[in-house]
Every structure is written in structure tokens, then in C-alpha cells.
Design a binder for these strands. Structure first.
Lengths: 217, 217
DNA sequence: ACAGAAACATACTGATCGGTATGTTGTCAA
DNA sequence: TTGACAACATACCGATCAGTATGTTTCTGT
């Protein structure tokens, strides 16, 4: 029957629901945002939400899934490149840092959810859904972990414990979620510069030998 | 009559309420944790909470206040010392990083609250209370800002934009909130090592000349 | 010994929220 | 034209929650 549309990808309504949910979860937190809030945010009612999602936690899971997909898509080009570790890391880190500023809603919702489920308490949803989301997160971290390991092996990086370094570096790249707000002067150039400086700091933190070590800015 | 106890510091009941609130707010988030949850967590009922605090947001404000007091107290010794900027930063950063791991409950609640009020929406409480809490946070950051500036002026630090560097470094030192969990092998030594490595990475990120590679001036 | 206040617990209320059941409208194929 | 289904809106329900009102016990000063 539907052989005519295997690639057709219209702006599906569920996408709008996800956007509204991400925005509300970011503004009020998962527990603080009601489904009526989400519906009101997109000028609709709860009926629309429940037409596409079976529960609040299911909606949250969809938001997490979407956020994770975006994360993977953003760093994959850099990861798949055949650059040396330092340059590969630079590409991945820069893309990721930029992405954190451009999709604060999804990323904030994702991290809040991640954080809630790590500090014990599966209070918000089901275990199974959360588990494979933790698995995804692990896979994402592993992409960075692999690059750090390669760089360490080749002597381009010099850091201590891999696990600590990895988490700390990711926190560095995510840090804009906690202070950057696209206010008045939110030109793309500024975000570019922030990402540049963050990557530079991350590289120094990793002990990357700066090609221009004694360069002054 | 009470001349005998000017320094006596009994474990005041409100302190227990704050502890329970901090734990619950961390586990379920501010919106997700009910006051009955908090009461149950300390084996009491809501009556006890409302005997000391006038509302849920008032309780949250008290938790924030307490967390902020702890933050100041922890870094003040290093800040008040007359060490050179790099060593002063090291002392402050190390104490702060350790503190993040030891008081995850209060700090997580504090950061969640901070984050919620920065991503717009004063949905959780009153404006006035939040404003002077933002002021306190600014004051805390300024203590690090001052040290970074001093280090930059003396040539011990070499970073880009001060504001970006400051936020990124603080995110680095706070990063344990998002992955460290006092699990099985949670000896104080391990926390000490984590803090050490984090400070080392922060110093490299700030462009501090490593005593290993470059002799101290 | 006794009044009163501090320190809670118990019982209740109005509002809100997640979820469901049902109604309404547009679309499209036969 | 119709009827069947998708895509919602509307109305409603039981549970939960912040907040309050009121009891009950323990401490305290006099």
C-alpha cells in the first residue's frame, strides 16, 4: 500500500510535541512541568500528547532518544574522519560544544534525566527504558574515550586516569548548559568563539602539546 | 542562665530537615519531591517541616543558603592565604572539588535550583529570595575570578576570555556531581585523587606552566 | 506545681496533575 | 455519499500535593 513514500519525511507533529516537551522540561524540570504546560506551550491540549505518547515518562523517553540521536549525529563526522587523534578530538569537541548551545532544550532535559537516574531512584519511569538509554550514553562516551586512548597511545595526549579525564572533559564541553543563555548578542560568531575557547582549554587540560606553545593571544 | 553555651552547637532539628530536603531534592528534583517525601525521609511528618519553614520554596531557599554557606567556608582558607595565584587557585579548587563529592546532596540541589532559574521561569518561588541567591553565587564566582585575574596579570595563567574560562573551570570542578557516586570503593583517598587530577587538568586548561615541564619562577 | 510555649503529629481541604473516556472535525478511499 | 480512520479537543476521574487548622506531648521558666 504505502510503497510510494519510503523517504518522505514531513515535519511530523510528534516532532512539535517533542520540542514543546523539551522546552518545558528544561524550564521547569521533569517533575515540575505538567503535561498541560507542554500542551499549552504548543497551543494544544493534552489530547494531542496522548495521541502520540502513552505516558509522561514515555514522552520523556522520546525526548531523551531524540537528544541522544542528535548528539551522535553531531560528533560522528569528526569521529569517522581519519584525522590524527588530536585533530579528531578537536573536531568532535567543537561540534559538540556548539551543539550544546544550539539545542539547550533537548540537552538540558537529557542531562537532568541522566542525573536523576544516577543519583538513585527510578522514580520517574520504567527501568528498561532507562537502561538502554544509559547504554546509549555509554556508547557516546566511548567514542570520546576511544579518541582519548588513541591520543594517549600516540603520545599526543598526556593526562592521568582516563575515566576521570573523560568525564571532566565532557563536563567542560557541556558547561554552557549552565551559564550560557542566547540573549541579546547571541550571534553565531560568539557561539563559535566560545566553542573555540572551550576546545582550546580542553586540549590543554588533556596535556595536548600545543603546536604554538609559546603563542600569546 | 544560658551563659554556659555560647559556642555549644547542638544538632538543631532544622538541620535535619535541611538534610532530608537536600537528599530528596537531589533524588527526585525539586518539582518531583513532595514534602511528604522529605518528611518520610527523616521519619517524621509535614508538621515538622512547616514548624520551621513557611513553604516548600522557603525550604528550598534554606537549602540553597546552607549550600552556599558551605561553599564559601570551604574555599575561604585558600582565598585568604597569601600564596601566589597559582597556589591559591590550587588550594581553593582542590577544596571545592573535594567538597562537591562530599556534599553531593546540597550541591546538586543548589545547582538544579540555579539552573532552573537561569533557563527562565521563576516558577518555583519568589523573585526576591532568588535574586540575593544569584548575588551570592556571583560573589562566590568572583573569588575565583579575582584569583584568575591575578594569575593572568602575573603571567602565571594564560587563557582567553576570562568569563568563559571561569565558567568552564568551575564546571570542571563541579563535574563530579554528574558522574561520581560514593559506591563500593569510596575511600577518602580515591576522592583525594580525583580532586588532584581535576585540579591538575584545570591548571593546564588555564595555561598554568606545569612545574614538571617548566621550572617555577 | 503549673502556665505557656515549643515541637511536633493528625486530620483535613482545595487545587492540580496524570491518565482515560468520549466527542468532534478533517481526510481520503471506494 | 459514505464510512472509516486519523488527529485532535473536551470532559471527567482518582490520586497526589502544598498548605492549614487543630490536636497532643514535652519542655521551660517561675
Amino acid at each position: 500500500m504505502n510503497l510510494q513514500e519510503p523517504i518522505k519525511e514531513t515535519k511530523a507533529p510528534p516532532e512539535q510535541v517533542l520540542d514543546a516537551a523539551a522546552a518545558c522540561f528544561m524550564e521547569k524540570g521533569y517533575g515540575g512541568a505538567s503535561l498541560d504546560d507542554v500542551a499549552r506551550h504548543m497551543g494544544a491540549t493534552k489530547g494531542r500528547i496522548y495521541h502520540y505518547f502513552s505516558s509522561k515518562s514515555d514522552l520523556m523517553h522520546a525526548v531523551r532518544k531524540r537528544a541522544m540521536e542528535l548528539n551522535f549525529a553531531v560528533i560522528r563526522p569528526g569521529f569517522d574522519s581519519d584525522l590524527p587523534p588530536v585533530e579528531k578530538f578537536r573536531a568532535m569537541a567543537h561540534a559538540h560544544a556548539l551543539h550544546m548551545m544550539e539545542r539547550q532544550d533537548y540537552q538540558t532535559a537529557l542531562f537532568d534525566s541522566l542525573h536523576l537516574h544516577m543519583t538513585r531512584g527510578t522514580s520517574t519511569g520504567q527501568d528498561a527504558l532507562v537502561d538502554d538509554f544509559i547504554t546509549d550514553r555509554r556508547a557516546f562516551e566511548d567514542m570520546f574515550r576511544e579518541v582519548l586512548l588513541a591520543g594517549q597511545a600516540s603520545g599526543e595526549f598526556a593526562f592521568g586516569t582516563l575515566s576521570y579525564a573523560l568525564h571532566t572533559i565532557l563536563a567542560t564541553l557541556n558547561s554552557t548548559l549552565y551559564w550560557y543563555s542566547p540573549r541579546n548578542g547571541d550571534t553565531p560568531e560568539i557561539r563559535q568563539q566560545i566553542a573555540d575557547e572551550q576546545v582550546a582549554m580542553a586540549l590543554r587540560a588533556l596535556g595536548a602539546m600545543d603546536p604554538m606553545t609559546k603563542d600569546k593571544t
